[in-house]
Amino acid sequence: MSLSRKEMNNIAHLARLEISEEEVAVFADNLSRIIDFVEQLSKASTDDVLPMAHPLDMAQRLRADEVTETDHHLEFQQNAANVEDGLYLVPKVLE
């Protein structure tokens, strides 16, 4: 299989990842080879096999609906690139 530049750009956009022109060429080659490599999975007979999402047979635990956490937003926002009045700033989304 050979993935096109257009497909590469589409995947990169879905992943919100800017990639350079040179990277498009390299990744098109890499991904085509990776997809060819994983193609061998189609050889395995998996009729009636349940998909396995998790290695242990365990049920999802629920916790009691109680307040256990206190507000730490000022502390957490010290790691943010841009904050004002306790809010995270991003480019304008709505006109």
Binding site: L14, L17, E23, L31, I35, V38, L41, T46, P51, A53
Partner: peptide
Amino acid sequence: KRRIMTGTYVLSAGYYDAYYLKAQKVRQL
């Protein structure tokens, strides 16, 4: 980046069953 791109591809519409679901079944085997 390579892995994010690969992951995005195998989860994208039209490829999910052929790759991701298939891999989860082989994982079971």
